[in-house]
Design a protein around this nucleic acid. Structure first.
Length: 153
DNA sequence: GATGAGCGC
């Protein structure tokens, strides 16, 4: 009586893969898009920089809502030593925001992580892996506006 | 989640 009938995981994955824009990202986001290095003397400054500076920290977007930090770490650990992996979730709802961060132990590991995971599938979604920008500066969490009823939070 | 580009506490 229980309707526990489910499609096999392979069937669900195939369905999602068929709908996912696998080759689409190369049209506007590719690692080979930056050709500015072809003119070494012409660009003392490169204002148009799609990717951030190389770092051990990676920004991963396009994640499935079901992907957790552990799944993120497991996937990226195939290409290097992962020091930290985190899926960003909403503080109040707890749901994944669909992106996260992966910090590798070394720069070469992070480079291999991008090469190995960027544009690949994770939980049925095409994910984008790139170097993360430097994080927001630390901010004391005492910026709560004063309340006439008292600060309880 | 019913939200699908993005840069976290």
């Amino acid at each position: 009586m229980a309707m526990a009938m489910r499609l096999p995981a392979i069937a669900r994955a195939a369905t999602e893969m068929a709908a996912a824009p696998v080759g689409l990202r190369r049209l506007f986001c590719s690692n080979a898009t930056n050709f500015s290095f072809l003119s070494p003397q012409a660009n003392s400054e490169t204002p148009a920089r799609p990717q951030a500076d190389p770092s051990t920290n990676l920004f991963v977007s396009g994640l499935s809502k079901r992907t957790t930090s552990e799944g993120l770490r497991t996937a990226f650990a195939q290409f290097g030593e992962v020091a930290d992996a985190k899926v960003v979730t909403d503080r109040v709802s707890g749901y994944s925001k669909g992106f996260g961060f992966v910090r590798y132990a070394t720069l070469e590991d992070s480079a291999k992580g991008i090469a190995g995971m960027d544009g690949k599938f994770l939980d049925g979604w095409v994910i984008f892996a790139e170097y993360a920008r430097p994080r927001e500066p630390y901010r004391p969490q005492n910026n709560m506006p004063p309340s006439p009823y008292g600060n309880r939070y």
